[in-house]
């Protein structure tokens, strides 16, 4: 199932990047590849069962003092 999903994502990306490249929008395609690479890396890592730091935990750490202040 996941394999098909990756296939879908990659083929869509391929078409889009090629289109961007053809319009010679290098900046666009660079950021496309960058964000997509980032997303896919995290996705694969989480698929492999590696612990991904949860951004919400980070936010919680910042706001915990505020919360205890109000409590």
């Amino acid at each position: 199932m996941w394999v098909i999903l990756y296939g879908v994502i990659l083929s869509i990306s391929w078409i889009q990047i090629r289109a961007l490249w053809k319009q010679s929008l290098k900046r666009d395609s660079f950021f496309y590849i960058f964000t997509m690479g980032l997303s896919l890396t995290i996705l694969i890592l989480s698929q492999l069962g590696l612990p991904i730091p949860n951004p919400l935990d980070g936010i919680s750490i910042v706001y915990d003092p505020v919360h205890s202040l109000f409590q």
Binding site: S13, Y32, M36, S39, L43
Partner: peptide, 8 residues
């Protein structure tokens, strides 16, 4: 151009 990667 950023919609799809950011969506993922």
């Amino acid at each position: 151009s950023l919609t799809f990667p950011l969506g993922i």
